[in-house]
């Protein structure tokens, strides 16, 4: 039974490293920085979590530290990728022609329209306040 769990742990290590390898391959092959962020963050998160799971199967006495490492990775990895993607968007780095969806640009155009439509009201209020 113990040997079987060890074998499962080794397979989990191998699967995690394969995910890391595919993440690196996507980092090289993707046409665009946004796609590179996607490929480089999601796959490496899953790959590292699978590797930690495999290490916890091989050495059950380490599982608390491995769980802590996994929790820190889950907290910090999306944060860094989100900040990088935001910076890339605001610096105006061009998307490739294969990238279709940009929700942040859609939201910005919507909020611009709303602010334009709200502008007369606010000016009116300002005038009222000035008259008062």
């Amino acid at each position: 039974m113990s040997a079987f769990i060890d074998f499962l742990g080794g397979l989990s290590l191998l699967a995690g490293s394969a995910f890391l390898l595919f993440g690196g391959l996507g980092l090289v092959r993707m046409p665009d920085i946004f796609n590179r962020i996607q490929a480089g963050t999601k796959t490496t998160t899953l790959g590292t979590l699978l590797t930690l799971l495999g290490a916890a199967m091989l050495h059950p006495e380490w599982s608390l530290k491995l769980l802590l490492i996994g929790v820190f990775l889950i907290f910090t990895n999306p944060l860094s990728s989100q900040v990088t993607a935001c910076t890339a968007h605001y610096r105006g780095i061009k998307k490739s022609s294969l990238t279709k969806v940009d929700r942040l640009a859609d939201d910005e155009s919507e909020s611009m329209e709303k602010s334009v439509s709200k502008n007369p009201d606010s000016e009116h209020k300002d005038k009222e306040e000035a008259e008062l």
Partner: peptide, 20 residues
């Protein structure tokens, strides 16, 4: 057996390191 799997997994992660 498990040691071989660990070394194989480390080689795959090394490939990811080289790509990055």
């Amino acid at each position: 057996m498990v040691d071989l799997l660990i070394i194989l997994a480390a080689i795959l992660a090394g490939g990811a390191f080289l790509f990055a």
